[in-house]
């Protein structure tokens, strides 16, 4: 019943519907890439830097590759990397935040100080440094980017989770569970965390936008996904030398970065409204 109500709430909310539409569109692009797009790696030196036409919808780049195909395949890269980062940092952040909030005392102090330390360092600068370190230590790999972003990204989940758990653990049903003989971990995993998921889902959605921005930024700086794998940020970087003569090389990747970030932000804002309104009704 409430699932249906929730779904109706989402679709009645314009922001949600719009955001969800954009995300579904981009996700479908990634999923259907082998069907709807050509080979993103195929170079054609006789057709370099051609403007958008019917044959090449978004034009071609400096190596004569089809920009449209690269954009479509790039959706796959970006979404996969962003999703992996989000899932890992959500798990780590939520768990640490919940532990800090629930047990309090010295555990909270230690985790709290770690969170503060990470918050004090500018995120992107820290990411760049970490990618550098990981590259030197483990060689180039997509996992460098994922790990580097996770290291800074879990903090926001931990902070939000901690504050939710702090208020949840004073709730009567938690005390009641304790009074009926439940252990701390059981209460935490089964009663506290599931009740905190609403705000966490909103945060995760909004955070996806940030993560996509970070991945693209790293890509633009040449630190992210390495060529020739198509990735939007890195495409902008490659196209920036031709920005006056072939602006489609930077315009289309930029457009899709903006679009996907917008999609997640709209959905996040919308969900916040829907979930918030549900709270009020309760």
């Amino acid at each position: 019943m409430e699932v249906v109500a929730f779904r109706m709430g989402i679709f009645r909310n314009t922001l949600c519907t719009l955001g969800l539409g954009i995300i579904v569109f981009i996700a479908l692009m990634g999923l259907l890439a082998p069907i709807i797009a050509g080979d993103p790696y195929k170079t054609n030196m006789s057709e370099r830097l051609k403007p958008p036409s019917l044959k090449h919808l978004f034009g071609t780049d400096q190596l004569g590759r089809d920009v449209y195909s690269r954009i479509v395949w790039g959706a796959r890269t970006t979404l996969l990397v962003a999703l992996t980062i989000s899932i890992i940092s959500m798990t780590v952040g939520c768990l640490l935040g919940a532990i800090a909030g629930y047990f309090g005392g010295i555990v909270d102090d230690v985790i709290g100080r770690i969170i503060d330390t990470f918050l004090a360092i500018p995120e992107l600068v820290f990411n760049i440094a970490l990618v550098g370190i990981f590259c030197v230590a483990y060689g180039t790999s997509i996992w460098n980017v994922i790990l580097a972003v996770v290291v800074t990204n879990w903090v926001s989940y931990a902070r939000v989770m901690r504050s939710i758990v702090l208020s949840l653990k004073e709730r009567e049903f938690v005390i009641c569970e304790k009074a009926l003989g439940a252990g701390d971990w059981y209460i935490l995993l089964r009663h506290v965390i599931p009740n905190a998921l609403g705000p966490i889902i909103v945060l995760a959605t909004l955070n996806m936008g940030n993560v996509i921005m970070t991945i693209s930024s790293l890509g633009f700086l040449g630190l992210g996904v390495q060529p020739p794998t198509p990735e939007w940020g890195q495409m902008i970087n490659a196209g920036k030398n031709y920005i006056t003569t072939a602006p489609w090389l930077t315009f289309f990747p930029g457009l899709f970065i903006a679009l996907s970030v917008l999609g997640f932000n709209l959905l996040g804002e919308g969900l916040q409204e829907v979930i918030g309104r549900k709270r009020l009704v309760e």
Binding site: E172, F173, C176, A179, L180, G181, A182, N195
Partner: peptide, 17 residues
């Protein structure tokens, strides 16, 4: 707790939603 001595809490918010 719960086995020998049980607790019936104040109403309303004592159930996990």
């Amino acid at each position: 707790r719960g086995r020998k001595i049980a607790w019936i809490p104040q109403s309303q918010s004592s159930l996990n939603p």
